[in-house]
């Protein structure tokens, strides 16, 4: 079972088109990407400022999908 963890972030980051929200796994000493870590269940709670379609960028199959 996955252990619950929390982390901080600034309140209400205002992000325009083209900004990327990236969830990744880094080595604590070097800051390099740690290989082989699987990420799933990514959920973003947002305020949709313009009310448009925010899911057009969500592709069913990405290049690095396993």
């Amino acid at each position: 079972m996955a252990a619950p963890m929390t982390a901080g972030m600034p309140p209400e980051l205002d992000l325009d088109a083209g900004y990327v929200i990236r969830v990744t796994a880094l080595d604590a000493a070097s800051g390099a990407l740690v290989s082989g870590v699987k990420v799933s269940g990514l959920t973003l709670e947002v305020t949709n400022v313009h009310g448009g379609d925010l899911n057009s960028a969500v592709q069913p199959l990405l290049v690095n999908e396993v």
Binding site: M9, D14, E45, V46
Partner: peptide, 27 residues
């Protein structure tokens, strides 16, 4: 979907969001 890190979301064209919370499961 399950992906090898990093996993990304790009704010679509002509849109703007206020990010309030992010959740993800790491295996």
């Amino acid at each position: 979907s399950v992906e090898t890190a990093p996993k990304e979301y790009t704010v679509p064209g002509a849109q703007e969001i206020l990010l309030k919370c992010v959740r993800a499961t790491f295996d």
